[in-house]
C-alpha cells in the first residue's frame, strides 16, 4: 500500500497540475482515503497532499461579515473556535460530535464533505454492489438497519457527512477551482442523488478542488443547533443527526432550515417541514405539532423502520432547543 508517489505542492495551481496526472487523488487529512485504499475502493498511483498549501485552513467568523472556512480546517479547529461557536453554533457543535478527539485533529472539512459512503456492502471488497458498478444493491433485501429511509432506491446508503448538515442549515456555499475555472455551488446542491449519478456522491468534477466555504453573515435574532442520536454513549456514528437554523421576527419563526442526516443518500433538506413551520408562533407545542409532516416520502426497509420514530423525536427535541435559543438571542 505504500508504493505510490506522494507529492506536496505549495500552491493551489501546482496541486491542480499534479491532480491532472492519471491516477492522482487529492489527500487532505487522509482519514477516509486510508480506509478506501484498504478496501481496494481506489488504487491511486499518486496522492496530492494539500497540507503544505498555505491559506486553506482558515476559520474566520466575525459579526457583520460572511463566514469563511478553509477546506483544510480540521474539525478540532472548527470545534474550538469561540466566535464560530457564538455566531454559527450548529457548525461548531457538529464538528465536536464527529468521531474521536484523535480523528478530529486529522480530519478536515473538505475531506468530511467528500468522504465516501460507509454502507458495509460498499466498504467490503466482497460485495460488488450497484454503486461500484455491479448490478445489485445488497442493502435493499439484506442488512439495512443503518440504511436510508428517504430516496433509498436504487441505492440505500446514508450520506456520512456530518458537516454538510450545519453548512446547509446556514445556507453555505462551496468555492471550487479546476483547470477550466472557478465556480461556486450551494452545499445543498453539491450532493447528488444516486438516481442522478450512482458512481459518486457529489458534483465534484475530475481535477476540481474545494478552496473555500462561505456562509452569510450572522443575522440578528437567529439561532442554530446540531443534534445527533446514537447507539452508544461514547463516540459512534449517528442513527439520526440534524442541524436546524431559524430566524425570529415579531414572536414568529420567520424563517427556518432543517437538514437531516443518516436518513438519505444525500444530506437531506426537509423542505415540506420547513414550509409547515414557517410563520408559526415561537411556541414549542405549535411547532412540534407539525413534526409528522417529515414522514412524507419515507419508505422504510425491512430493518430501519425504527428511524421514523427516532427522527420525529429528535426533531421535536431540536425544536424545543431552537425556541429556547431564539428567545435568548
Amino acid at each position: 500500500m505504500n508504493r505510490f508517489q506522494l507529492v506536496q505542492p505549495l500552491t493551489v495551481e501546482a496541486a491542480m497540475k499534479a491532480l491532472s496526472a492519471k491516477g492522482s487523488v487529492l489527500r487532505a487529512g487522509g482519514v477516509d482515503l486510508i480506509d478506501q485504499q484498504k478496501e481496494y475502493l481506489i488504487a491511486p498511483t499518486q496522492l496530492v497532499d494539500l497540507r503544505k498549501v498555505p491559506g486553506l485552513a482558515q476559520v474566520t467568523a466575525k459579526p457583520g461579515h460572511k463566514l469563511a472556512l478553509g477546506p483544510m480546517a480540521t474539525l478540532s479547529a472548527i470545534a474550538s473556535d469561540a466566535e464560530l461557536r457564538r455566531l454559527y453554533p450548529a457548525i461548531a457543535e457538529a464538528a465536536e460530535a464527529v468521531a474521536t478527539p484523535q480523528i478530529r485533529r486529522l480530519a478536515t472539512l473538505g475531506g468530511n464533505l467528500c468522504q465516501r459512503p460507509r454502507c458495509w456492502y460498499f466498504r467490503s471488497e466482497e460485495f460488488h454492489c450497484l454503486k461500484k458498478g455491479g448490478d445489485k444493491c445488497f442493502a435493499q433485501e439484506g442488512e439495512n438497519v443503518w440504511h436510508a429511509l428517504f430516496e433509498n432506491f436504487p441505492c440505500a446508503m446514508v450520506h456520512p457527512s456530518t458537516m454538510a448538515l450545519p453548512l446547509i442549515a446556514h445556507d453555505a456555499t462551496i468555492e471550487l477551482v479546476s483547470a477550466s475555472g472557478k465556480r461556486s455551488v450551494s452545499v445543498e446542491s453539491f450532493f447528488v442523488k444516486p438516481e442522478d449519478k450512482l458512481s459518486q456522491e457529489t458534483q465534484l468534477k475530475p481535477g476540481e478542488i474545494i478552496t473555500a466555504l462561505h456562509a452569510p453573515a450572522h443575522a440578528g435574532k437567529s439561532a442554530s443547533l446540531y443534534v445527533r442520536l446514537k447507539h452508544k454513549q461514547s463516540f459512534d456514528w449517528p442513527l439520526i443527526e440534524l442541524a436546524l437554523w431559524g430566524r425570529a421576527d415579531g414572536g414568529k419563526l420567520a424563517d427556518v432550515r432543517v437538514a437531516l442526516g443518516a436518513v438519505a443518500p444525500i444530506p437531506l433538506r426537509a423542505k415540506a417541514l420547513e414550509s409547515a413551520l414557517k410563520g408559526l408562533a415561537l411556541d414549542p407545542a405549535a411547532l412540534k405539532a407539525k413534526v409528522p409532516v417529515v414522514r412524507k416520502g419515507a419508505r422504510a426497509l425491512a430493518h430501519n423502520g425504527y428511524k421514523i420514530g427516532l427522527l420525529e423525536t429528535t426533531i421535536a427535541r431540536a425544536l424545543d432547543e431552537l425556541v429556547r435559543r431564539l428567545k435568548a438571542a
Partner: peptide, 12 residues
C-alpha cells in the same frame, strides 16, 4: 497533539 499513529503517514 493526540493523534492515531495508524492514520499518519511518515511524511507528515
Amino acid at each position: 497533539r493526540l493523534v492515531n499513529s495508524c492514520l499518519v503517514p511518515l511524511a507528515q
